[in-house]
Amino acid sequence: MKQKFLTFIIAFAIWIVFAGKITSDVLIIGVGAGLITTVFFHNMLLRSINHPKGWFNYFRVLLVVIVFIPVFFYEVLVAALKVSRHVIEKKPSFCPGIVKVKTKLTNITAITILANLITLTPGTLTLDFDIAERAYYIHWIDVRTREEVEARKEIIEQFEKWLEVIFR
């Protein structure tokens, strides 16, 4: 019940932002659309509502995410500059390849977000995820090492640390 109520509040707030003004017809349509969204998707948005630490957990996650955003954009910018260097070079000098990297994460939301972060960082691209071995298959534009441990250190380790703190 708490989960449904919170999902409705979030959907309604996003609707208000997209509508841009608060009048009676906007409010009525927003309530209707928010209710439909809540009925179908309430178990997808807030999965860890029954966390033992309760509300404090959400507060902690919010703080960590706010600290994480500048770090993430710094990483993305540096990686984008690396790919741009390959583009501008007179003769493109890279050795692309597909490497296999295992992960320690168990939470399914964390695994999805980590795959998205890998893809969003230029130079690496998630191709597939093996559920049995918990391993990503990553297309890497500039394979510097063939050892799995070093590839893991270079590609995913820092994002993995942040996600371990967030989904504790």
Binding site: C95, P96, G97, I98, V99, K100, L127, D128, Y137, H139, V143, R146
Partner: peptide, 9 residues
């Protein structure tokens, strides 16, 4: 892929 140094997939 046309060029690949390593292909685990």
């Amino acid at each position: 892929p046309a060029i690949r140094t390593i292909d685990a997939y």
